[in-house]
Design a protein around this nucleic acid. Structure first.
Lengths: 338, 338
DNA sequence: TAAACACTTGCAAACGTTTGTGTAAAAAGC
DNA sequence: GCTTTTTACACAAACGTTTGCAAGTGTTTA
């Protein structure tokens, strides 16, 4: 029968001193005599004493925990982001509470509630794709729990955000193709309403403009990002009257889907493809896009964690009167695989 | 200036009743009058009251948190395992504290300490690959924090474990190759001391035995699992006097490395390859092993979580006298890609 | 009419800390 | 040898809960 963990009171009793003295001794408080300090520390060591953090949490009103809610870990973007978050958290003696929303708003709400109950000091969230109601986030703000959004960000006012600007990467992607001589470049984009899609389109258009080419809306199609949707989008775009020699694909996965389809249907002139994500698995692939836009998930996670810790630490300063909101935008970058 | 969260005491003051009454009212304690019960609940709702869990934790000596420590999330095995864990955790109103050891013992120790300080109710661990000293785990056991190990398990007595029996999968893998007519089958294994490696070898030998073939030790080489190590192992095995027509590879990643190398060095008769992991990315690959052994990470995670919760919940029963230890072994299964 | 009983509610201790304040004894000043 | 300062410790409140026990009503029973 394992005895329960030793407490300060236990040490105090055994040493016949008050438990406040024990507490101070363990914290090297200057008003404690060297002798007792040593005695206390020795006994604490012997008993394997560890402060009960839940008590400390209650006392300090802090849990040294940051919550992270994201759609899922299957996409390699998120493990990378978490690693960035964890790195910063560990350095600051914080700990990471994880929840996957699985892109379900309902589950996201539940996770937010759960983390609120567990009194996380701050929250880092990549929103579920189809969340449109932000009440649960508002409630969180009212609870005085700071949030930093990254990657998939709600369209709310007065929030802290970290994101990666896809426009720059898109310009690079299209410019890359233009430089290679392509003039009829298709864009298979994601769902129209997504910010991510809008940014890709924006960059696509800007790159054309820069090169004094006219934007042809018929060269842009949207996919719902399922495998069938991707294939459908591919065939749709190939129907274009003009001969498409290159395609910008919303994501590496989409790129792989359509490359497979191009292969299966034995297209004679396969278009050159560039996409987004720069998934780690790409290094293993023989047939892959020509280039892919890197979104620096690790860095995004790191930044988000730094911000949340900064907010947490300055929470009680006069600083918080100064209602400034972080809005970090990293630049994406095209990675050429050849 | 956001006001701090409302407490039971606040509600009590506003209603001019004692806070113990409030507490009981909120918990639907039978001894509280219906009238006050309603009053209390109404006001609690209005104020947006949420019990301060850290206080509850302190009171109950539980945190409703389970810690998960694993090497890293980059390998898709672990996100799947976490998903299984999270699923069970959520259903039981538990929450998941995550830490990546990055296969560093030092970091693993730090994480264990950190989780212990945060008083997780239980811990699920996939050990760092090169951890050989188990003091930190022993200390945990002494602290009366239950642990369930999965995937990579220390060779300790009296621990709870969930693992996937690679022997069955290995037998299937080799049998698969034998059925295809291969008689000289190489095995590129992982580091010799790993249980995972031992099990693969064991299965390899058993399959041969079953088919009355003699085991030839020269057909087995070990790799350190770095890319260079994998390539080196490939060339070493190909030097064999006998003509190797098939290879069993320790892991899909190893398989991909050596397939790339076979391609680069333009071997005329490429051996057929089967490997382990059944990585999700395989579905995207055109050139991949013929088959791969699935280890059911989601299921392993789920089982591990179910066990840890069972232990936590029965901790104070007389049950814990009965020193039984869970040892769940799932069977692996060969997945044929063709 | 007193005793017994529900039914409600309040009081206070407990969980394990941290920390402000009070107070002895020891050291210093004169 | 007296006051003053310093040193080293104890006391107690607080963080927000839960819960055993006591106590106050009002109602039923003998």
């Amino acid at each position: 029968m394992p005895k329960s963990a030793p407490t300060i009171k236990e040490i105090a009793r055994k040493l016949n001193i008050s438990f406040s003295t024990v507490s101070r001794a363990l914290h090297d408080h200057p008003s404690i005599g060297l002798g007792t300090k040593l005695k206390v520390k020795k006994l604490a060591e012997e008993l394997g004493y560890e402060p009960n953090q839940t008590a400390v949490f209650l006392q300090q009103g802090k849990t040294y925990t940051i919550g992270v809610i994201l759609p899922h870990l299957a996409e390699s973007f998120f493990p990378a982001a978490i690693s960035g978050i964890e790195e910063v958290a560990i350095k600051n003696d914080y700990v990471v509470l994880l929840g996957q929303s699985l892109d379900s708003t309902e589950r996201e709400i539940m996770l937010v509630e759960s983390m609120r109950k567990h009194r996380v000091d701050g929250l880092i969230i990549s929103m579920a794709k189809n969340t449109t109601n932000y009440e649960h986030f508002e409630k969180l703000k009212k609870s005085n729990i700071p949030i930093v959004f990254f990657d998939c960000i709600p369209s709310m006012k007065e929030i802290h955000t970290v994101s990666c600007n896809m426009i720059s990467g898109s310009i690079q992607a299209v410019s890359y193709l233009l430089k290679k001589g392509h003039r009829v470049i298709g864009l298979i984009n994601g769902p129209e309403k997504l910010t991510a899609s809008k940014e890709r389109l924006e960059g696509y258009q800007q790159a054309l403009l820069k090169n004094r080419l006219k934007f042809d809306p018929s060269l842009v199609v949207n996919s719902d990002l399922t495998k069938e949707g991707n294939i459908k989008a591919l065939h749709e775009i190939l129907k274009n009257k003009r001969k498409i020699t290159a395609i910008v694909a919303f994501h590496d996965n989409l790129a792989l889907d359509i490359m497979q389809e191009l292969d299966i249907t034995k297209q004679e002139h396969k278009p050159v493809i560039v996409s987004y994500a720069n998934l780690p698995m790409m290094q293993f692939l023989k047939y892959k896009p020509n280039a892919s836009v890197e979104q620096f998930p690790y860095l995004q996670g790191k930044k988000a964690a730094e911000i949340i810790l900064d907010i947490i630490k300055n929470k009680n300063n006069e600083q918080n009167q100064n209602n400034a909101f972080y809005k970090i935008i990293l630049d994406s970058k095209l990675i050429d695989y050849h």
